[in-house]
Amino acid sequence: MSAARFRPVPRRPDHVELERRVLAFWEEQGFFRRLLERNRGGKAFRFLDGPITANNPMGVHHAWGRTIKDLIQRYKAMQGFDLRWQNGFDCQGLWVEVEVEKELGFKCKRDIEEYGIGRFVEKCKERVRKYSAVQTAQSIRLGQWMDWENSYYTMSDENNYTIWHFLKKCHERGLVYEGTDVMPWCGRCGTAISDMEIATEGYRELTHRAVFLKLPVLDRAGEFLLVWTTTPWTLTANTAAAVHPELGYVRARQGGETFILAEARLELLPGVEVVERLPGARLVGLRYRGPFDELTPQEGIEHRVVPWDEVSADEGTGIVHIA
């Protein structure tokens, strides 16, 4: 009887051990470095991995993304392309700071000031150094190939000096200007926040009360636009009130006051007397007094009714606050 050609396979293979053996084999044979040398000088293919924030161990969603990225890079390397295999770590931002605040038991930004901003920054750097090492080990364990010894860190002097140099050049060319914009703001953190920070960390769907306002029509004593909004925090920046030009509206009298609103929304004012029916187009151009005209930013703003085809009578009053 001939000898067995293959080593016996256990009924329950130790997959973790098998993976570790493969990783050790790759390392012993130096396959990654040999691949770099083989393709050096070939046609360049550049893929810079968007850095993970080094504030915690990787999640499964990071593993999914890194698996796909690794697949693409290996495929291009097999075609002979010269790759950088560049990894990086995002070291700044609220995700790191908030985790350090939790670690130190802080409740507000005043706690950071009392602790010392310099000491707090160093604690953030310590956390980044710790979890960038953890994420590197996780990625290697995943089987991902990168030039791990040359990962970039956004907190490095090289990175910050490069950004400052870039901004200096933009300033010299007149490309930097001061302006104003509406952006998400975290009152607790005392800073602007990005869309990503809202979407992944702080976004929650909540049910809020809608706000109805009566805005006085200029030159018509006792007459008001009945305006509706789901974003009352923007009322200080009101610039216009929008109506649908083809929607039916009414002037309705109630208790000595006259209100303008969509006819389909008369249920909001029970017992009113309809004085006039008119299309939204006839309301366009009406001037009114804004809700916060006494504020300095509202100086010089003339509030008017404007047409907008997106206005609906399905909810609200048929007149929408515009900021």
Rank of each mutant, 00 (worst) to 15 (best):
E126R: 05
V128A: 08
G143A: 06
R127F: 09
T154F: 07
K123P: 02
V98Y: 03
G143H: 06
T162F: 12
L104C: 06
V100E: 05
K109T: 07
I163E: 13
F120A: 06
I112W: 00
D147H: 07
T162Q: 11
E103D: 09
N160F: 13
H171A: 14
H165R: 12
S151D: 14
G116E: 08
N159A: 13
W164H: 04
I112L: 00
K123H: 03
Y152A: 12
Y131I: 01
E113A: 03
D157R: 15
L167W: 04
Q138V: 08
A133N: 11
V98C: 02
T136N: 05
R127A: 08
L104A: 05
C170I: 02
A137M: 03
E103F: 02
N160K: 13
E158Q: 13
K102C: 03
E113P: 01
S139T: 15
V100A: 04
C170P: 00
K168H: 11
Y152G: 11
R141Y: 12
N159S: 13
E172D: 08
M146C: 04
I140R: 15
C170W: 03
V98Q: 09
C124P: 10
W164L: 12
K109I: 03
W164D: 10
S156D: 15
D147N: 15
L167Q: 02
H165M: 06
W148S: 04
M146A: 05
G105T: 04
R129N: 11
K107F: 00
K125G: 10
S156L: 14
W145C: 09
R119S: 14
L167N: 03
K169M: 11
I112C: 00
Y152F: 15
S132L: 00
G116V: 06
E126D: 14
K102Y: 03
H171C: 07
H171I: 03
M146K: 02
V128Y: 06
Y153F: 15
Y131A: 01
N150S: 14
E103V: 00
Q138N: 13
K130I: 04
H165V: 02
C108H: 02
I163F: 06
E122S: 13
M155K: 07
R127K: 14
G116S: 10
H171Q: 11
R119I: 09
F120R: 07
E113Q: 04
W145V: 07
G118Y: 06
K109E: 03
H165P: 01
T154P: 10
Y131Q: 01
V98W: 04
Q138W: 09
S139L: 15
H165S: 14
Q135P: 05
L104V: 02
S151M: 07
R127Y: 07
T136L: 04
D147I: 09
Y131V: 01
R127H: 08
Y161F: 15
I140T: 10
N159E: 14
D157M: 13
E172W: 00
I112G: 00
V134Y: 10
N150D: 13
K107N: 02
L104E: 09
R110H: 03
E101C: 02
A133P: 05
I163P: 05
S156I: 14
E126V: 03
V134G: 07
E101G: 01
